[in-house]
Design a protein around this nucleic acid. Structure first.
Lengths: 343, 343
DNA sequence: GTCACTAATGCACACGTGTGCAAAGGAGTA
DNA sequence: TACTCCTTTGCACACGTGTGCATTAGTGAC
């Protein structure tokens, strides 16, 4: 169908091996021949077949990227970072969304192994450990971002969720809040657990009790999840004065829900998010949150993976250096304030 | 490196061709042998090499997807639709972001041609016509979503921007507004032009004049673009009472900007968006906008492309049937209201 | 003129899979 | 027994590219 190396050989009157060498810029071929070959290649619109090349070289120049959802801003901002570095280094990206569905996970792993991706980035907090082992088992390097099972025998990058959650909670406590609740997202695995743990730890340090019902986990994702979270907390006999939300998406939903219920933010209830997605600066009031360098995380994970690919010697010893924890930072905006005196 | 068809052949004591046939479920091979082969394949962890298969069959089982940005909700929601259908049909996706950068466009096209993608979906309003021709020139089917150059000789899906913009503008006029302004995004090519045209058309129909400065194009994308848009309009001697924004992202930025300036919405100024991204229902006030079935658009484009791949006979005649215009619908929320009497 | 050496190119095989054709074996029929 | 037919399997080549090795031509030295 498309023009091959042989067509160029025929057109130039040389053998196909000469063309192959010339295209790769081998010093074996004379300058003049190389030039002639490259010209006709350009004229004929030749593009080397990645399939054939990959067959021979065992390199596909493709990476596999697995996320939970593409249309969640947290993931898509990371993706943008990955994409940039990947493209700069001439790697193409197979991107797939697991949708937190085990069946999809299986078929994604299958597809990527068939395509012989050179490496994989898993950016899905609850991606099955069993599936990700499929890669490492067959020698495909893998970098996990913020995975629930960030075992130290793998390369991984994650942010310190515990720390972030503690900072947010402490901020609320310092403002004078005593009745603080946590709204979690049950399907998010380790990330959610860590953030909850951070919340709990800080509450204990301040010797504050967490009344029943003040820790609520929902299974509904995203913005609308925030709405049902609000329903729950407003139904409690005693309302919390502050709400620590698992992430910005939930928090934005919560803000909307509180507004609809006629509750003023931050006067009656303070709200915090997590991640600092772009929209969190545009809510009303703007959201106090914990900033994650999402673009940077994606870029960094890709750089790490590319390093792995170019390192032939995989010394076991260097592995532990490659678990990188990226610190975020507290971002104070207007959705948090001291509680009203009456409370 | 990884286990091949020959390894299975050796382990089962048959020839590699028998294995090949058995794996594909050929009726030529006896049931018993097939079963034996499939079992050992499973045990050895065999995955067919897409490269080798693609070399032989001229089918890569991969699609190329080009968007402007991954982290724009409009695109990522479409991507989610594409991803779903693609994955259901066992196609892997090469996803790339052009960033509206000509150099990147070139390298994306190059990478996708090398990988011999079976088809391409272009979802970048201003993707260069010259580059997209590179695909059709070499027989790679291409479906364009909402492209600026939706020539009828290609398969394309787009929404009726003109119509949507007219409906929004008419809605404002019916509410009683007479001083209506348009905030556009200059880099968005045809889409922006059409929406502006719809606005103009409706204003003319109502015999309303558009004062100088009431049509403003910015080059800054996204949310922050909305802020600078507000700056412009508030600097005008006579403020508009309603603002038609190119899309939701801009509108959300505008809402924030107006809030900061102490302008009440919709009492003093009504605001409309376009696209209905998830967040637009969660602003304060919720945004009146024009709903696009983004997920459906992505899915539909993919179905169309897959149809093309499975149709051997490309009858010229059917081409025009495949320019599909998807109608959206007006979504009235609370960011629009009649103007104050004083105006 | 012979030899050694270098530069430039071609030959032939390999990568993993699919497929047309031949071959082998068995069953059935006359 | 001889023939035909069908089922099941193997042989061998092809896809497009990369590469070790052999080959050729050219240059210089003796």
């Amino acid at each position: 169908m498309s023009v091959t190396i042989k067509d160029i050989a025929k057109a130039t009157g040389v053998s196909h091996s000469t063309v192959s060498r010339a295209m790769r810029g081998s010093s074996l071929i004379s300058e003049e021949t190389t030039k002639r070959i490259k010209e006709t290649a350009l004229n004929l619109g030749y593009f080397p077949s990645a399939a054939a090349r990959s067959l021979k070289t065992n390199r596909s120049q493709a990476l596999g990227i697995i996320v939970s959802n593409i249309d969640d801003p947290y993931f898509s901002e990371i993706l943008q970072g990955i994409e940039e570095i990947g493209q700069n280094n001439n790697y193409s990206l197979f991107i797939a969304a697991s949708q937190r569905d085990p069946e999809r996970e299986v078929s994604i792993v299958q597809a990527m192994r068939q395509h012989r991706v050179d490496g994989v980035i898993i950016c899905s907090t609850n991606f099955s450990d069993q599936q990700s082992k499929q890669f490492s088992k067959y020698g495909i390097p893998i970098v996990v971002i913020n995975n629930q099972a960030a075992e130290d025998y793998r390369y991984s990058i994650y942010h310190d969720d515990m720390d972030g959650s503690q900072q947010l909670t402490r901020h609320l406590i310092e403002l004078g809040h005593r009745k603080i609740a946590y709204l979690g997202y049950a399907l998010s695995g380790r990330t959610n657990m860590d953030r909850l743990a951070g919340f709990r730890h800080e509450m204990e340090s301040a010797r504050l009790t967490i009344p029943p019902g003040y820790i609520h986990q929902i299974t509904e994702s995203g913005l609308s999840g925030g709405l049902s979270g609000v329903d729950h907390f407003l139904r409690l006999a005693e309302h919390p004065t502050a709400l620590v939300c698992y992430n910005d998406m939930l928090a934005i939903g919560v803000i909307r829900g509180l507004r609809q219920a006629g509750v003023s933010i931050p006067q009656e209830i303070s709200v915090t998010g997590f991640d600092n997605i772009d929209f969190s600066a545009f809510t009303d009031p703007p959201l106090t949150t914990f900033d994650q360098p999402k673009h940077f995380i994606g870029a960094e994970a890709t750089r790490l993976l590319l390093n792995l690919l170019n390192t032939t010697s995989l010394e076991e010893t260097s592995w532990h250096d490659n678990v990188r924890i990226l610190k975020g930072k507290l971002l104070l905006r207007e959705s948090t304030a001291p509680p009203l005196a009456s409370h």
